[in-house]
Design a protein around this nucleic acid. Structure first.
Lengths: 219, 219
DNA sequence: ATATTTTTTTAGGGATGTCTAAAAGGGTTG
DNA sequence: CAACCCTTTTAGACATCCCTAAAAAAATAT
């Protein structure tokens, strides 16, 4: 598998092409910041290799083999992100670019040893589940809910984010919000739905837009 | 810098092309298991980029910029090898292939954090010095070892001889052993300590006396 | 249902990096 | 110095992966 093929497979997975629901050529092109004609080329190629099902003008979706491949790449990506944050003091917003490179390193042993070294983590620093080597996700133990959907008074643990853009992650970093951080919803402003929170020791006000992108697990 | 360019730079460095001593096209081709014509193409390209000095029919050697680049790659390679052995329980013979991939990851921060995480090691698991981020070796001499002192499995480059008598040099010539020639130690005869070698394309048996007079630089 | 717009594919080309085959250069030896 | 041989370069080609421009198909609007 080439690096480029892997990137296409991963993108198709993330766009939802894992449940026999086809993803369109344009959607892939936009996501990957490339041109539709390039996507068509690759779609045919991946189809020939049995990684996706592709019919002209009908988009692509992953085959069984394609899903397995995608989960393998996602596993690598998330383990590397975990490593970067836990061991090398990267902040959330710095990991993605490097993990994008590291996820293409080819070595079964490397990734399994890394998994062990990290203590077989179930979630990456963004709170997303890490597939096992057999390609299965760990079940989410408790329900993960958006901060914006929870009532005043709730105490919980920050479990992940919906938006993982660099700017959002930088915002979180600046305000001391991180995975595992305890968050207490102190109040809600009716006018604009902003929230008063206690985050660790400090109190903050966050807008509805922010609250709508942070997942909490109730204690 | 592309991955391929980096590999050429590294190879030229290892073949000794860092001291204004040119390395031949054939030596590079053999070392990289590619064809001389490919090497010529790349030599011109690296020359245009100012990484090597190249004149037709006269081989290449690294420019200042090329040496800096080479040291950066070697630094990454050796830090990753150290990581693999110390933290992920790789054995020394398993690391090379994976480190060859990891050395091309592009991130200043990554490599500096890795360096810190490992406690700023001065030597890699093979005992070879790790260049600092400023491109200086902790110890200047590149490791040149006698063939007779190395274990089975080692691949290296012929770097010189201890005995330089005419008869010995003639022997070497007759058997296709020359500076820059790649040598792989395939096995050792316990009875008389003679070695089975692959020299370039051919396999040879050499006595302990011969092996005790040839210096190798490990890859 | 036909015209228009959007999406997708095809056709053809460029950059990188590889190869084979043939030509050119350089070194050795009679 | 001339013939030979080995090294190196050139020429031309192929695969990958990307692009632009134009054609074809599908979706949408009138």
């Amino acid at each position: 598998m080439t690096r480029s093929e892997e990137n296409y497979i991963k993108t198709i997975f993330h766009l939802g092409g894992n449940k026999s629901v086809p993803v369109t050529t344009n959607a892939i092109a936009e996501q990957m910041e490339t041109k539709p004609s390039s996507v068509t080329d690759m779609a045919r190629k991946l189809g020939d290799k049995g990684l996706v099902h592709y019919k002209k003008y009908q988009g692509v979706f992953l085959s069984e083999k394609g899903i397995k491949t995608a989960l393998g790449i996602i596993r690598k990506h998330r383990l590397w992100e975990t490593f970067l944050v836990q061991k090398l003091d990267f902040s959330w917003d710095e990991v993605h670019e490097v993990a994008e490179q590291l996820e293409h390193i080819k070595s079964e042993k490397l990734i399994d040893e890394l998994d062990a070294f990290l203590g077989f983590p179930k979630y990456d620093p963004h709170g997303d589940p890490i597939p096992t080597r057999d390609g299965e996700f760990h079940e989410q133990e408790k329900e993960k809910k958006l901060l914006s959907d929870l009532p005043v008074g709730i105490k919980g643990i920050c479990a992940g984010v919906k938006d993982s853009s660099a700017s959002f992650l930088q915002y979180l970093d600046k305000h001391g919000i991180a995975i595992g951080q305890s968050i207490h919803i102190l109040g809600k402003e009716e006018f604009d739905n902003s929230l008063y929170l206690r985050i660790g020791e400090r109190e903050h006000t966050v807008s509805h837009l922010i609250a709508d992108n942070i997942y909490l697990i109730r204690e």
